[in-house]
Amino acid sequence: MDTDTDSVAEAIARDVQLMSPRIRASRALTDQLLDPEFVEVGASGRRWDREAMLSAMPEMQGADEDGPTYEPTGMTGTVLAPGLVHLTYETTIDGRRARRSSIWRKLDEASGWRMYYHQATPVPGE
């Protein structure tokens, strides 16, 4: 059985994968990391469902190997319940910062940890 530390580490590893240009550019790879009931509230305030995110991700910022990439800092996590982890952190991409929160859930061993919810809030210039 996973320990709390293992669960948080796995969620962090998968969240970092979702920031990788290689993953973002591939619908098939992104598909493996998003929960069937995935929802996101983006930094723009837009609400995304799973299908909209899978379709848009290859064209979004951070998907081009030669372009700006996400730089996460301060990633921490808490196990909310067995199979449910909440992560918080900040990212910088192309000079813009955002505070982020994601919830990862593990429905079974076969599918592993998948992002269930994500929210990004822009950090105003300081």
Rank of each mutant, 00 (worst) to 15 (best):
residue 88 T to C: 08
residue 50 R to D: 09
residue 111 S to F: 01
residue 31 D to A: 08
residue 87 L to N: 11
residue 66 D to I: 01
residue 83 G to R: 08
residue 67 G to K: 09
residue 97 R to T: 05
residue 17 Q to I: 00
residue 61 Q to I: 10
residue 94 D to I: 11
residue 88 T to Y: 01
residue 79 V to R: 09
residue 19 M to V: 04
residue 27 R to N: 07
residue 56 A to G: 05
residue 77 G to K: 01
residue 22 R to N: 07
residue 100 R to W: 02
residue 29 L to I: 04
residue 63 A to E: 09
residue 14 R to Q: 14
residue 44 S to I: 10
residue 36 P to V: 10
residue 80 L to Q: 09
residue 28 A to Q: 10
residue 109 E to F: 06
residue 124 P to K: 12
residue 10 E to N: 06
residue 87 L to F: 02
residue 3 T to C: 08
residue 8 V to H: 03
residue 71 E to D: 04
residue 78 T to V: 15
residue 29 L to H: 10
residue 30 T to S: 14
residue 4 D to T: 12
residue 99 R to E: 06
residue 6 D to W: 00
residue 62 G to P: 08
residue 37 E to A: 15
residue 42 G to T: 07
residue 111 S to I: 09
residue 3 T to G: 13
residue 59 E to K: 13
residue 111 S to H: 12
residue 7 S to A: 15
residue 1 M to F: 06
residue 66 D to R: 08
residue 38 F to C: 09
residue 38 F to M: 11
residue 6 D to Y: 00
residue 92 T to S: 08
residue 76 T to K: 07
residue 93 I to K: 08
residue 89 Y to S: 04
residue 123 V to T: 09
residue 74 G to D: 14
residue 63 A to L: 05
residue 9 A to M: 06
residue 52 A to Q: 14
residue 99 R to T: 10
residue 74 G to C: 02
residue 124 P to H: 07
residue 32 Q to I: 02
residue 120 A to L: 03
residue 4 D to I: 01
residue 91 T to I: 15
residue 61 Q to T: 10
residue 95 G to E: 04
residue 116 Y to A: 15
residue 73 T to N: 10
residue 126 E to V: 10
residue 8 V to M: 05
residue 113 W to S: 12
residue 108 D to W: 05
residue 119 Q to R: 11
residue 119 Q to T: 07
residue 19 M to G: 14
residue 110 A to V: 13
residue 91 T to C: 11
residue 63 A to V: 11
residue 108 D to V: 07
residue 93 I to A: 05
residue 33 L to P: 10
residue 59 E to N: 12
residue 18 L to T: 14
residue 43 A to C: 00
residue 39 V to Q: 11
residue 96 R to Y: 08
residue 6 D to E: 14
residue 124 P to F: 07
residue 106 K to N: 05
residue 126 E to N: 11
residue 61 Q to S: 12
residue 7 S to F: 01
residue 51 E to N: 12
residue 77 G to P: 01
residue 49 D to Y: 01
residue 41 V to Q: 06
residue 105 R to T: 15
residue 35 D to I: 03
residue 92 T to W: 01
residue 30 T to C: 14
residue 15 D to F: 05
residue 116 Y to W: 15
residue 82 P to Q: 05
residue 52 A to Y: 02
residue 116 Y to R: 05
residue 13 A to C: 00
residue 124 P to W: 06
residue 23 I to M: 09
residue 122 P to E: 06
residue 125 G to Q: 09
residue 3 T to D: 06
residue 117 Y to R: 04
residue 26 S to N: 07
residue 93 I to F: 03
residue 67 G to E: 06
residue 98 A to D: 10
residue 58 P to C: 07
residue 44 S to W: 05
residue 66 D to K: 14
residue 65 E to D: 13
residue 74 G to K: 00
residue 3 T to Y: 02
residue 99 R to S: 14
residue 80 L to G: 02
residue 7 S to W: 02
residue 119 Q to C: 04
residue 99 R to V: 10
residue 67 G to R: 06
residue 25 A to S: 15
residue 114 R to H: 02
residue 2 D to Y: 00
